[in-house]
Structure formats: structure tokens, C-alpha cells
């Protein structure tokens, strides 16, 4: 699948949820199990991406400078730092560790 095709397909796929919401009867909201899974699915997928992005490299599990960077990010989130500051600090920590360790 080419990247451009994927970009257009994914955009339409996300849009499909948004438009279906305006076309469907609102009784769909009343299914508690469906609503609960949809709610938890967001957390599960984002957490999975955190795992892949933070602790793997290619097809291998790899612990490196990203670990300490995530600890700093967590500390800044705890201190209610703005999103952009937290992200930039994580990048800086990882970059500095790699610089020092060669």
C-alpha cells in the first residue's frame, strides 16, 4: 500500500466516524458496553503506541535514552507543564544522553 493511498484512506476512515455520528440515531449512545469499549480503545491504542515508540526499535525490544526521557516527561506532566514544553524536554534529554554516551 503506498503512503499517499494510506494518507487519503486513513483520513476518509477517520472522517467516516464523524459523519456517521450525524447520520445515525442517537440511541447508539445508549449501548453501555459499546460506549465503554470505544472509550477504553482510545487509551489502549495510544498506550500501545507509547510502548512501541518508547521501548522497541525495528523488531526488537530496546531500552535506551528514551527511557530517561520518558521519566522526565512524566515528571513534567505531573508538574502540569505545557504539552510542547514536555515534548521538547523529552527530546532534549534523549539528545543529551546520546551526545554524552557517544
Amino acid at each position: 500500500m503506498s503512503l499517499w493511498f494510506g494518507i487519503v484512506a486513513a483520513s476518509l476512515a477517520v472522517y467516516s466516524w464523524k459523519i456517521f455520528g450525524y447520520l445515525l440515531p442517537s440511541s447508539v449512545l445508549n449501548n453501555p458496553v459499546l460506549a465503554r469499549i470505544a472509550n477504553l480503545l482510545t487509551v489502549a491504542l495510544l498506550a500501545a503506541l507509547l510502548g512501541v515508540q518508547g521501548f522497541t526499535s525495528g523488531t526488537q525490544i530496546e531500552l535506551d535514552a528514551r527511557g530517561p526521557a520518558l521519566l522526565v516527561a512524566a515528571l513534567l506532566l505531573f508538574l502540569r507543564a505545557p504539552f510542547i514544553v514536555m515534548v521538547a524536554s523529552a527530546a532534549l534529554v534523549a539528545a543529551l544522553i546520546r551526545l554524552w554516551l557517544g
Binding site: 503506498s2 476512515a13 477517520v14 467516516s16 466516524w17 456517521f20
Partner: peptide, 24 residues
């Protein structure tokens, strides 16, 4: 790319629930 499309799609599901609430 296929997995990226499916991931993005699944993460968009909550927008459907927002739309249900915004429609009325």
C-alpha cells in the same frame, strides 16, 4: 501503511460519539 490506516481509524471512534452528541 495498512496497519497505520487501521490504527488511525480505530482511534477516530470517539469522534463518532462526539458527533452523536453534537447532532441534536
Amino acid at each position: 501503511v495498512g496497519a497505520a490506516v487501521v490504527s488511525a481509524w480505530l482511534l477516530g471512534i470517539r469522534n463518532g460519539f462526539y458527533a452523536l452528541r453534537m447532532a441534536p
